[in-house]
Write a protein that binds this DNA or RNA. Structure first.
Lengths: 187, 187
DNA sequence: CGCGAGCTTGAATGACTATTCAACAAGAGG
DNA sequence: CCTCTTGTTGAATAGTCATTCAAGCTCGCG
């Protein structure tokens, strides 16, 4: 049985789940082997190393996230409404019992020491997200206002990703967001 | 040479630095031995385990943080001004080259999986901080307003702790905070 | 049908992990 | 001066870590 050729994206999705939940250091290659079903040799041939696999998983996660944001902003009648919808989705996520914040945020914090490459990847992707928000806000506000509001929005999103671990925090978060982002079309 | 009796707080401060920077999983007991100067046996007699040492370090960090907040709020002419001073201090921290967010926040994110005890400790301490802010805000605003603003404030603090890794973000953060916390007495 | 390229396999590797413990040292109390 | 308590020491333990590689399988091509 030597030619089953695994589905790369499927494997990456399982890696995302594992790494996202436990972080980089606390995820062993043994766990990767168990959750993906691949043997060590196959993983190393396909991804090079633990770091290589993590990097690809992180990039896939980021790409999915960016796509979801773009979609929501594009689908809504206005940018503000698109943002509100995204925020509400994030709040909903935080009510899940196995809530684990945002893969990019967790990676940014975990691997910050000494110019770690994965930290840089996560940071770059988060910057891309901010830039995306700003580009859409540009259509509705002046350049300097939209930049300021994009930062404010990111601060709130990051904040939620930490605050969300609190039990039954959904309503608190909703109130806090209304307080700090009054320029959004809340309903 | 068998009775030097190390200084517990000094050791804890070194442990804080190590764990804060690298996180729980990525800090080995070998590193703890190196940075504290203690031998394995002494560490285990004094703190029981890697987790025990981490817990005490985390609690010491939290106690120091709470004290600093209380101090600042007490010293300022008004609660708002005390909060502004604290936020500005946080911004300053983020400009350091070896910035590493907040030990409590990092721990909350790293060790969230499966009811980890250290995650609970970190979360409890962060809740204490929020409660402290709220208690002080109660003196100036109505009960429901102060609760809402305490949440909003925590969202911004958490947000900064993630955003702060961005290079030269200080001015962005300052602008973002003004945007989201307009009820503070900015100058 | 047979060859070889390409992928899989899983046991083996050596380094590193947290933790233990028997031997030992030095002060306090008698 | 002896002993007991308290704390130190660091080599040893058993396990886990990321990674490798020789051997084997299967498919596509000639």
């Amino acid at each position: 049985m030597a030619r089953p050729q695994f589905d790369r994206d499927e494997v990456l999705d399982k890696a995302i789940e594992l790494y996202w939940q436990h972080g980089y250091s606390a995820s062993s290659m043994q766990q990767v082997v168990n959750t993906t079903g691949l043997k060590p040799g196959s993983i190393y041939l396909a991804f090079g190393s633990k770091e290589g696999l993590f990097r690809e998983a992180l990039e896939r996660y980021a790409q999915k996230s960016l796509a979801k944001i773009r979609e929501s902003l594009e689908a809504a009648p206005s940018v503000g409404e698109g943002i509100c919808a995204l925020l509400e989705t994030n709040i909903q996520e935080s009510t899940r019992q196995d809530y684990c914040s945002c893969f990019l945020v967790k990676t940014r914090l975990e691997l910050a020491a000494e110019g770690n490459e994965l930290h840089k990847v996560a940071s770059a992707k988060l910057d891309e997200i901010e830039a995306l928000f700003q580009r859409y806000l540009d259509n509705e506000y002046g350049k300097s206002v939209s930049r300021q509001r994009a930062v404010s929005l990111m601060l709130h999103i990051f904040g939620m990703r930490v605050y969300g671990y609190r039990r039954d925090s959904a309503d608190y978060i909703r109130q806090g967001l209304r307080e700090g982002l009054p320029w959004l079309p809340w309903e």
